[in-house]
Design a protein around this nucleic acid. Sequence first.
DNA 1: TGAGCAAGCGGAACCGCGTTCCGTTAACCA
DNA 2: TGGTTAACGGAACGCGGTTCCGCTTGCTCA
Lengths: 197, 197
Amino acid sequence: MADIDSGSAQAAPRKRADALRNQQRLLDAAAAAFVAAGVDAPVRDIAARAGVGVGTIYRHFPTRADLIVAVYRHQVEACAAAGPALLATSGTPHAALAGWIGLFVDFLVTKHGLAEALQSDAAAFETLHAYFLDRLVPVCAQLLDAAATAGEIRSDIDAYALLRGIGNLCVGAGNDPRYDARRMVGLLVAGLRLDHD
Amino acid sequence: MADIDSGSAQAAPRKRADALRNQQRLLDAAAAAFVAAGVDAPVRDIAARAGVGVGTIYRHFPTRADLIVAVYRHQVEACAAAGPALLATSGTPHAALAGWIGLFVDFLVTKHGLAEALQSDAAAFETLHAYFLDRLVPVCAQLLDAAATAGEIRSDIDAYALLRGIGNLCVGAGNDPRYDARRMVGLLVAGLRLDHD
DNA sequence: TGAGCAAGCGGAACCGCGTTCCGTTAACCA
DNA sequence: TGGTTAACGGAACGCGGTTCCGCTTGCTCA
């Protein structure tokens, strides 16, 4: 379950040590560049930070989306895992849903440009789009379903559309003190509730 | 009230006929290019459509935002004017608000890339941002205020943040059949309502 | 009316950025 | 240790926005 390289994957002959090292350096450099300049940090900057040539970036991460996914994979997985956990520990499904959405929003607004990249229809971001959707839509759907079954929210909400809407509301947050994405997402979530009480 | 050039503005000596003609051609060409390729249509394409050189674009419209504003000015003005009109003719302030927001959303989703440009923090779009805000925030504030006074919605909603949120929800609409911006905006507006009934 | 002037024009040139390509380097294995 | 080749680096290319300057042409005034 643990060692992917030595055990199971004999088809891939084992990577060279310098290739592994460079891949790790690139991940670190990209993470730093993303913090400093957002997820559209220039390719050359990332390469320079890592001390490698630009060609090396493209060999390891053919599209920018591959690099972004690699950098944020851990956090996305954690977010996905938090869904069922919240459902188990929260008082109501709606509280779990609200809490989980809060996590997602916190993640997006602290990654400059990530929300924008997620909504981009450029072909290069297809992988990014697909990864986030694959991991998070099922979790969101589960939370929505639980809350709908409990009669707390309307039952005609599509998880994909909701996630996309939330992502959209996070676009540009952090650049504009007059705009509070969390607040707007809160209103959107309030709009999900059934009218009683 | 009508002739700006001949009457009031004597400081500007009167433009040459070819300059006026080119400006109009550029507006037409830009409008066509925006429909065909979105508001980020390449400058060279717009120039080619208008049959002018790229330098001529920059002389008339120093930034892309100036061009966008010029192309859509009429529609934005119409949208701004519709606010008070709806307030006067609708049954309730909330109905007026919902109707007006519907107009705004229809406008945004039919202009490819406009919502994106509106949220962009690039310096070149500062003019665009400022123009939309100047014209629409007061209208939105008036509608919000009327609805809040009537006790239909919460009274702690900022017109600027709401418009920005709505604009955000319209980003990418039209490229994705699974995402319905109007629906999401509807949920957001539902979230404005006070809890009773 | 036609000569002089400057407003206005066109597009070459420049810059920054993403992406590709290939000659060179150095890990790995026998 | 020497051969093989994965992997590297960075020059080169394409594209789009922006600037700049020599030429054109509409307008004015004698």
